[in-house]
Write a protein that binds this DNA or RNA. Structure first.
Lengths: 197, 197
DNA sequence: ACCTGAACACCGTTCAAGT
DNA sequence: ACCTGAACACCGTTCAAGT
């Protein structure tokens, strides 16, 4: 029989890791602080030392998701080709890949928080993600591949399409096959929406 | 003191109405079957006669939401102008108006259900909504205002943008002012995405 | 600083029994 | 057919107390 250490070491990180695993495997409804504590061999009151309530843990989970998505998009940008269309296509594929691989997490990331103060960091994170799309559009404007005009007037709709497509992929409105076969059509439509007249 | 009737009359409808009210006023976290029953002056076990569990009530709520959104879009179609751009603009405005006026409900409508069988009706409802967008695009193709090609290759991205924009409006990624001021840019981008080359 | 154990006020769900 | 009341097995949160 193993001795149970009094100190866990890094309970906060362990809670987040385990919570994401549960979210992925059993869905958001199965996430309970008490079960998390049980799984980690800690009392049911211990999590409250690290997260003031359940929502705080969910917010931290969502924030980590935004950070990972940010990294995935940044990585795809380096790997992408030369033309605006290629680079935009790479962005869309990276976003959709993340969405499909982390469906429950993406859902959590964009779940409405009615407490406006608590969700400020999450809204900021989402907006930073949008800035990535806007930057790509700005590059396209400089190279003449994207029409002129206020960059937000083009970048915001692009980000909107990106998010909508990923959202449909996650919510099963589009099947896995439809997502795969629809990717090129969506990218072509986005490029046209950006193109100079 | 009023006599409490043994039979409620139409408890099912009363539960749905009250549930939507609670959803709107206090958010999804505050929705409890027991509190609903208390509010309606009925025992806590009574709801189970009408909804097999809590998820079944949420599904019924979401389905009713899809029906009302369908009606709102159909109504906007009749009121819209002659050109494709006008008609598409009317569709976007109607969708966004519904989203803003029913934020919590829209969120519920698109919340991922991990039980694939239970959510079949909801996925079908969402796809029927998409069909409205696709029909509009098909009309545009017949009148020559939309480029040729498989109608889904244009209609699906249009529906995707529509949904993404509404989703951002609901999740506070875009503020109310940004939604209002961004509408025209989104519509212009969508029209360009559809236009003949 | 970090965790435990008990307590409180809730849940959803089920099921015999009532009308 | 529809609802009640009691029971069961869970929750999240708080707080004195322990190490």
């Amino acid at each position: 029989m193993q001795t149970r250490r009094y100190h866990h070491g890094d309970l906060r990180a362990a809670l987040l890791t385990r919570a994401e695993q549960t979210l992925r495997e059993k869905g958001p409804g199965a996430l309970s602080l008490r079960e998390l504590a049980r799984d980690l061999g800690v009392s049911h009151a211990a999590p409250s030392r690290h997260f003031k309530d359940k929502q705080a843990l969910l917010d931290a989970l969502a924030l980590a998701g935004f950070e990972r998505l940010d990294e995935a998009l940044a990585a795809s940008r380096k790997a992408a080709g030369e033309t605006f269309a290629d680079r935009l296509g790479g962005l869309v594929r990276a976003y959709v890949d993340f969405a499909v691989a982390n469906a429950e997490l993406l859902d959590l990331m964009y779940t409405v928080k009615h407490d406006p103060a608590a969700s400020e960091a999450l809204i900021t994170a989402a907006q930073r993600l949008g800035a990535t799309a806007v930057e790509l559009v700005a590059e396209g404007q400089r190279s003449g591949e994207v029409r002129e005009g206020p960059v937000d007037d083009i970048g915001m709709p692009v980000f909107t399409t990106l998010h909508g497509f990923a959202s449909f992929a996650v919510s099963s409105v589009l099947s896995a096959e439809e997502v795969e076969s629809g990717l090129d059509a969506v990218i072509a439509y986005m490029v046209r929406g950006c193109a100079p007249s």
